[in-house]
Design a protein around this nucleic acid. Structure first.
Lengths: 223, 223
DNA sequence: GTTATGTTTGACATCATGTCAGATTTAACC
DNA sequence: GGTTAAATCTGACATGATGTCAAACATAAC
């Protein structure tokens, strides 16, 4: 039977009263969950419509085991997105967004997000479509970084304050997605898209035109 | 039997050689197709995952009849998008984009697209996800209008030329989508979104900041 | 080595897409 | 108005995906 897996909710550190001290979670459970998550990431990246069976096969696991760890297909997809979000956040953390002029930091942030998006080209197609709220909540960690940076830039006078900050964040993210799409649809080359994205994002943020020309001039170092 | 419906390809004016002059297409066929299309528009607007059976029911038609007119569910969705695109184009035509300053015309275009998008809030969720090419091709008529306007503005010096024109078009469309999302997700009020979108789009296009402040100042007439 | 935990196998229910064929209705044509 | 082809309806069927359940089996924890 597979009735007792605690992947959904972590109860490890809960000291229940009437619990006759349960046994520890088995190690292969984590191993399976990890394999499934990894396989799902790959399968879905290749074909967003891939079935749970495909994913199970790729993970070297039976289909039912997948359901033992993830309630539904949607839940699995959600978990995959969480993983990718984590990767994105990690790369953004490495970009040291708190240092230097906000405009430069913004370009570094674009680079970071960019790399993540390029690694999972069909990321957008995977989008659950079902609950928009949950989808939005998942992006929160990424948006938070962006918000923080935008706020800093607005305070320093580098960025515009005549539109709401959340909208600015949305606009930046959305432009990033569009540029990513354009590239992996073959409508733009990667360098062209990179430059166009940089210019447009800086413009949206209200950065001084002279500064933009200064920052975006080919392959300058973004320190 | 329902084997001879010519909805897929219009053969009306083809003078076949060995055809023993076939009978005219029956009127109820068009009526059904129309009803199905209309029902699909409504059902899918309410719930993008609505089944073909739901749509058939709403159209007052059997499920099989739907398949008689549209090969697959995807084809039906494609047709729905075509219809909506048509509506959008009509509204854009009414906006007289060739007249007056390009910046003003751009704001009128935003209004027009905006109205269409608000009428079908879940339009984005419907997106087929399957063939990106076809999806892109469908938007072409809308993009054409935008391209034309952008080109005009670039020639007149109102809009920037330091990013590719197609990218500019993509950016404008994508910002419009984002603003629409923000509104129907309740993250922004409609007037706020309208103003923010206007400002951001004009900025992306490189319109003079002074001109922007001038154009966007609440509820001014956009002549 | 015992035992709970996890995985597997196989079966099953459900639902949606898509197809086929026969019976029936309806519009086109004379 | 009657004939006939076109269109729809009914019902059935195949397929494939999502979930669920239960018993047999494997393995890691104690």
């Amino acid at each position: 039977m597979m009735s007792n897996i605690t992947t959904f909710v972590n109860l490890d550190n809960v000291s229940e009263i009437a619990t006759p001290r349960r046994r520890r979670r088995r190690s292969d459970a984590d191993r399976s969950a990890g394999a499934i998550l990894l396989a799902a990431k790959e399968i879905l990246a290749a074909q967003p419509h891939g079935s749970v069976e495909d994913i199970a096969a790729a993970a070297g696991v039976s289909r039912q085991t997948v359901y033992a760890h993830f309630k539904t297909r949607e839940a699995l997809i959600g978990a995959v997105i969480d993983v990718i979000t984590g990767e994105a956040v990690a790369e953004m953390d490495a970009a040291r967004l708190d240092e230097g002029p906000a405009a430069n930091a913004l370009l570094r942030l674009l680079d970071a997000s960019w790399r993540t998006l390029q690694r999972y080209p069909l990321l957008l197609s995977i989008a659950t479509t079902a609950d928009v709220e949950a989808d939005h909540a998942r992006h929160q960690p990424v948006v938070d970084h962006l918000d923080r940076l935008l706020t800093r830039g607005r305070r320093s006078g580098e960025f515009t304050t005549d539109v709401p900050a959340p909208w600015l964040a949305t606009a930046v993210v959305t432009l990033g997605h569009a540029a990513g799409d354009a590239v992996n649809a073959g409508r733009m080359t990667l360098p062209d898209a990179t430059e166009a994205l940089a210019r447009s994002v800086l413009r949206v943020c209200g950065v001084n035109p002279a500064t933009i020309t200064d920052l975006v001039s080919g392959s300058e170092p973004r320190t």
